[in-house]
Design a protein around this nucleic acid. Sequence first.
DNA 1: CGCCAGGCGAAAT
DNA 2: ATTTCGCATGGC
Length: 288
Amino acid sequence: MPFVARPALEKVEAPDFDLEKTLNSGQVFHWTAHGPGFAGTIDEIPVYVEQRGAELWVTPGQGAQVRRHFALDHPMTDIVASFPDDDALRAAVDFGRGIRIIRQPAWECLATFLTSALKQVPHIRAVSLAIRRRYGRHLRLDDLELYAYPRPAVLAQASLDSLRACKLGFRAKNLLAAARMVAHGELDLDAIRHLPLEEGRSRLGRIPGVGPKIANCVLLFAYERLEVVPVDVWIHRAVSQTYLRDQKRRTAELAVQAFSERFFGPYAGYAQQFLFHHWRMTYRKGGR
DNA sequence: CGCCAGGCGAAAT
DNA sequence: ATTTCGCATGGC
């Protein structure tokens, strides 16, 4: 068998970063393990990333993209130092050390979380990959076949039935409506980046299927509003059982959000991410 | 079989 | 102004 040389990879310094944890922390759902690394897309660029200690070795020419996408410039020491000092959060930060809140393309992030309602992470992943394969631009990277997330204009012309074939269930009509809003110029995703937080929340909330939780996911994972706390079932459990034990009744999601964004401070979104990952990995059924 | 999943929106209180 | 239910699908 002839020896086929792998193309050289480009080195990126990545101190205090953990690629595997970051990709499995419920932010992004399309990367797949490939050899010692992972293959995926950053917007419409196919990329291979492999971690060796405190370095990433990536597809040549994509070092700057990778560095930006995985937010390797986030000041993690300052972020952790800004948190309240308590056992639960310290344990979560220790458990999740190396996780970054990555900078996702806005449409891809919005569309993916639109399909996340009442689904488990592996299901979101399966749906995301099915949509990419069916509608996304085909990208080749050496021997790898990758697919970009389809642009709004493409999904806007999809039929409801073909979307449903991707196991979207009741979420299909919301994805279609959102794609049409963006494609028809009724929703300007670029404009939201520069809006005040509450205005951004309200704009996103006009999209059918986008309530407070999904709006907050998009604000945190795509618009880098690191002070925002999306409240899902795990964060609700973690925060209410850790910090709101004296409450007699179940605290409403919006109240948990308000408490968390005040209590955890300017990087509350990061605190949320550490708690989410720790609780999900610790308490999920059959958890590793 | 029953229960739950990185929720939302309409209906009922 | 809040609480309760239905919604598709799949894994345990």
